[in-house]
Simulated assay, not measured.
Amino acid sequence: MASKKVDALTKMDIIHTAKNFYWKRQMPKWTVIVVDRELPVRPLVLEAARVAPNDPTNSHQAVAKLKSFGFEVRYEGRAV
């Protein structure tokens, strides 16, 4: 179950966060294209919601949220 803060996210929250989001680790399997950048799905959603990394929201819930906003989601580099 996604947290309430994640459920309350808007498309603009994601776009705003993506503009200032930096990921220095290896890219995970699930990624999303936002503002012409490929970013990790779950970390981006958690950052946008301003919740801790141990939030119960899983990758599939984060993917569903981003797809509902119309973002291009990828799994291992391939569009889903």
Rank of each mutant, 00 (worst) to 15 (best):
residue 1 M to C: 13
residue 2 A to N: 02
residue 2 A to M: 15
residue 2 A to G: 06
residue 2 A to H: 03
residue 2 A to L: 06
residue 3 S to V: 01
residue 3 S to G: 08
residue 3 S to N: 04
residue 4 K to A: 15
residue 5 K to V: 02
residue 5 K to Q: 08
residue 6 V to E: 00
residue 6 V to L: 02
residue 7 D to N: 11
residue 7 D to M: 12
residue 8 A to S: 15
residue 8 A to G: 09
residue 8 A to I: 07
residue 9 L to S: 03
residue 10 T to F: 07
residue 10 T to Q: 15
residue 10 T to D: 13
residue 11 K to H: 12
residue 11 K to D: 12
residue 12 M to W: 08
residue 12 M to F: 12
residue 13 D to T: 12
residue 13 D to C: 10
residue 14 I to S: 00
residue 14 I to L: 10
residue 15 I to A: 10
residue 16 H to W: 11
residue 16 H to K: 12
residue 17 T to E: 11
residue 18 A to Q: 09
residue 18 A to G: 09
residue 19 K to E: 14
residue 19 K to M: 10
residue 20 N to D: 13
residue 21 F to C: 10
residue 22 Y to L: 13
residue 23 W to N: 06
residue 24 K to H: 15
residue 24 K to E: 15
residue 24 K to F: 13
residue 24 K to N: 14
residue 24 K to M: 12
residue 25 R to C: 10
residue 25 R to Y: 13
residue 25 R to T: 09
residue 25 R to V: 09
residue 26 Q to R: 13
residue 26 Q to D: 11
residue 27 M to T: 11
residue 28 P to M: 02
residue 28 P to D: 05
residue 29 K to Q: 12
residue 29 K to M: 09
residue 29 K to I: 12
residue 30 W to C: 06
residue 30 W to I: 05
residue 31 T to E: 03
residue 31 T to D: 07
residue 32 V to P: 00
residue 32 V to K: 02
residue 32 V to W: 00
residue 33 I to E: 14
residue 34 V to M: 12
residue 34 V to I: 12
residue 35 V to D: 15
residue 36 D to Y: 11
residue 38 E to A: 14
residue 38 E to M: 15
residue 38 E to N: 15
residue 38 E to K: 15
residue 40 P to W: 03
residue 40 P to D: 02
residue 40 P to F: 03
residue 40 P to A: 03
residue 40 P to R: 04
residue 41 V to N: 00
residue 42 R to S: 01
residue 42 R to H: 07
residue 42 R to G: 00
residue 43 P to C: 08
residue 43 P to N: 06
residue 44 L to W: 05
residue 44 L to K: 04
residue 44 L to N: 00
residue 45 V to Y: 01
residue 46 L to E: 00
residue 47 E to Q: 14
residue 47 E to C: 14
residue 47 E to Y: 09
residue 49 A to P: 00
residue 49 A to R: 00
residue 49 A to Q: 01
residue 49 A to H: 01
residue 49 A to E: 00
residue 51 V to P: 00
residue 53 P to A: 03
residue 53 P to K: 07
residue 54 N to W: 08
residue 55 D to M: 02
residue 56 P to I: 07
residue 57 T to R: 01
residue 58 N to K: 10
residue 58 N to R: 05
residue 58 N to W: 09
residue 58 N to T: 04
residue 59 S to E: 04
residue 59 S to N: 11
residue 60 H to K: 13
residue 64 A to L: 13
residue 65 K to Y: 05
residue 65 K to C: 04
residue 65 K to D: 03
residue 65 K to S: 05
residue 66 L to K: 04
residue 66 L to Y: 02
residue 67 K to S: 09
residue 67 K to V: 05
residue 69 F to Q: 05
residue 69 F to H: 10
residue 70 G to Y: 11
residue 70 G to W: 10
residue 70 G to F: 07
residue 71 F to H: 05
residue 71 F to D: 07
residue 73 V to N: 01
residue 73 V to D: 01
residue 73 V to H: 04
residue 73 V to K: 00
residue 73 V to A: 02
residue 73 V to S: 03
residue 74 R to H: 15
residue 75 Y to E: 07
residue 75 Y to V: 04
residue 76 E to N: 09
residue 76 E to M: 08
residue 76 E to A: 06
residue 76 E to H: 08
residue 77 G to A: 10
residue 77 G to K: 03
residue 77 G to Q: 04
residue 77 G to H: 08
residue 77 G to T: 06
residue 78 R to F: 08
residue 78 R to A: 09
residue 78 R to S: 13
residue 79 A to Y: 08
residue 79 A to I: 13
residue 80 V to D: 11
residue 80 V to W: 03
residue 80 V to K: 09
